[in-house]
Nucleic acid binder design. Structure first.
Length: 239
DNA sequence: AACTTTGGCAACCGCCGCTTA
DNA sequence: CTAAGCGGCGGTTGCCAAAGT
């Protein structure tokens, strides 16, 4: 446990909310270890952070999940599994919102007593990459050094060999962020069906990634590279 | 009306990975 | 190189209101 002993737990009061909001507005997000001291709250850093991120942040949506949001949650959940579910791909939705929604609505629907068939089908999906990566600038294999196995292991359990040319932006990025951000200037790919909702998806395949071709339900890569682990054998849109 | 069950959600806990000294 | 600190995530719990009996 962190913070002083006898820290308050349980439901937050209106006064505590005000203190926390005032503190964040004054000092900004981050430095959570300093927030209890700065705000005068008798709460641990984690509690303060959680309260802000899940409840007090001004951009949080409180209305019901739209069908589009639900659809995205389901598809990405099937693609990725519980880990790194699409929490950050739904603007205005908190990780807790998405998690609670999945736990209370969708998990029952798909894994409950009536959902056995669906669960069986889901079990056949091979989760290629359960842990979308964020590339940190300081990691040695991104600094031009020869990648050490230990570095790679610590950065990503799913990797079997080091990168040679990870698609890294200057600031580092999560591939899922790129997947859905629809960055400008990235060339279009036509990997996905009918093009309707695919622009953002296709932006993921930029010039730094090996060209990918969809054959049937499977993406095949046209040339050998260290990026091969990124092959997909699932079709997101048929999930 | 009273009691029980169910559903939704806020919050906590434990762990992990990254950064920094 | 290593350990401590910190931020963040997934799993879980507990409370409360709504629905059901």
């Amino acid at each position: 446990m962190d913070g002083p002993s006898e820290v308050r737990k349980g439901a937050w009061t209106r006064e505590e909310d005000v203190l926390l909001r005032t503190c964040i507005e004054k000092y900004g997000e981050g430095k959570w270890h300093q927030v209890p001291f700065r705000s005068g709250l008798n709460r641990c850093r984690k509690s303060c952070r959680l309260r802000w991120l899940n409840y007090l942040r001004p951009d949080i949506k409180r209305r019901e999940f739209t069908t589009d949001e639900v659809d995205l949650i389901i598809r990405l959940h099937r693609l990725l599994g519980n880990r790194q579910a699409p929490k950050h791909q739904l603007p205005g939705r908190t990780s807790n919102d998405v998690k609670n929604y999945w736990n209370t609505h969708q998990s029952k629907k798909y894994f409950g007593k009536a959902g056995k068939d669906v669960a069986d089908k889901t079990a056949k999906v091979t989760v290629i990459n359960t842990c979308p990566r964020t590339f940190y600038k300081n990691l040695s294999y991104l600094k031009g050094k020869a990648a050490k196995e230990s570095d790679v292991q610590s950065a990503d359990h799913t990797l079997s060999k080091p990168y040679s040319t990870p698609p890294l932006s200057e600031d580092g990025f999560s591939w899922l962020d790129s997947l859905f951000s629809g960055k400008e200037g990235q060339k279009e790919s036509t990997c996905f069906r009918d093009g309707s909702a695919n622009e953002s998806i296709s932006s993921f395949w930029d010039e730094e990634t090996p060209a990918a071709t969809k054959v049937g339900e499977t993406f095949l890569e046209e040339k050998e590279s260290d990026w091969n682990h990124f092959s997909f054998d699932v079709d997101l849109w048929d999930l």
